[in-house]
Every structure is written in structure tokens, then in C-alpha cells.
Amino acid sequence: MNTVTDQSYKEMIHSIIVPANLSVQDQVERYRPLTEYLQTETPERLYRFRRCNEWSIFAFDQDQLGVTPGYKMNDDFDALLYFDKSRIKDNLKHFLNDPQITQKLREYIGQADDSQITMFADQFYNAMAQQLDKDSDYISNLIQRKINFASFSENISSADMWGYYADSSQGFALSYDFRNGNYTVCDSCRTKFQCSTSKNCTLGRYR
């Protein structure tokens, strides 16, 4: 990505807000700018390196992709969501110490003096900091335990990929084109909504 694209991507990510009480269809609409962007930026070819074992041959024959939860991945950083909690807390503290914010709090609370304003700001900060710690741990655990991943490479000639994932070049590699966003022939998945038959989905199996 170039600098302009990086900035536009950042702005797009920060503009997407998806309340938990939205319907699945409405959530899909909120995510649409991101999904369209990813389809545009997805490389023409992505490669999957496999060993010549029973599972790989079966998956190839059935046109399936193996997926795995984050905590089982070879590299935890591939599925590790990072929160700079110290920076978030510092920004929150600076925000609450801003004289303009203090004045707004004074107007909102009414007859509170400076000590009461400070106490309220401290209580608010502590509550938000505790919630941040709680939510970040929950989200990290959710990604590690509940979301499944499949890894690909853009480089068919990668010696590392052939060596590690294709059994020292004795295996094989498959080429995939995900640019159209249709990852499976499943009618339910093509609707982009929650699949009622996900346990039997032909897209993925645990490896």
C-alpha cells in the first residue's frame, strides 16, 4: 500500500461503527466499505502450501480449506490482537485534564467545586480503565478461541513456505483467487449472512 492508501484505509476503519444490536444484514452493510476494499486489494493469486498426507489429499479432493483457531497457530502473532492500553489510558487522562473538558464537566454537574470535578474525573477514568482491561482481554480471547484462520502466501517461490509447510518441498501448493469474495459454492455463504449449516460448511475444516 502507498501512503495515500494507508491513510484512506485508516480513515475507513475508524469510520466503521457496528453496534451489537444491529441485525446481521445491517452489520454486513456497515462492513461493506471494508469488504469492498479487501476485494480490491486482495492479490490476484494467493498460495497454500500443503504436505502430501491423508488430510491434505482429502481436502484437495473435496475442495476444502483447513482452518484453525488462533491459539493453535504456529505463530501466535498472526492472530494476536494488540491493544496499546497504556497509550489509550494516557490519552483518556489527558482528555479529562483538558481545561475545556473540565469546564464542560462543571457546567454539566452544576455547583461542583474543583475538588469534586477532579474526583469525578478520577472516578470516570478508573471505571473506563478497568473496562478497557476487561474488554481487551475478552476480545483477545474471543479472537484466539472463537475465530478460525487460514494462512496463505503471495510468493509461490518462497523457500521457507516450501520447506516448512510443504514437507521440505515434497508437498504441493494450490493457487487461490479470492478477489470476487465468493469463497465457496455454498448458497448460504454467498448471502454473506450467518450460515445455519456452518457445522457442515464445505469451506473449512479444522486441520
Score class of each variant (00 low, 15 high):
L46D: 04
F178M: 13
R87S: 10
M161T: 00
S140H: 13
A127P: 02
Q25K: 11
F172N: 08
D26C: 15
Y125C: 11
K10T: 13
T184Y: 08
G163S: 02
L34W: 06
S140D: 08
R30P: 14
D133K: 10
Q64P: 13
S158A: 10
C186N: 06
Q64L: 08
F178R: 06
Y164A: 11
V28A: 12
D76T: 15
F58A: 15
N53C: 08
F49D: 02
K146R: 10
C195L: 15
G163F: 00
T102D: 02
N91P: 04
L132Y: 06
R145L: 03
D78T: 03
A79Q: 08
L34G: 03
L142N: 08
R205L: 10
M73A: 00
N97W: 01
N21Q: 15
R51P: 07
K134V: 12
K146V: 09
T197V: 07
L81M: 02
V185F: 01
Y71F: 05
S56V: 02
N180E: 00
E154A: 07
Y71G: 05
D61Y: 09
R32E: 14
D177E: 00
A173K: 04
D122M: 08
N2P: 05
R87F: 13
C186I: 02
N74G: 07
K146L: 03
S136I: 04
T35K: 13
I109A: 02
R205W: 10
K192N: 11
D137I: 12
K72N: 15
V67A: 05
D84K: 11
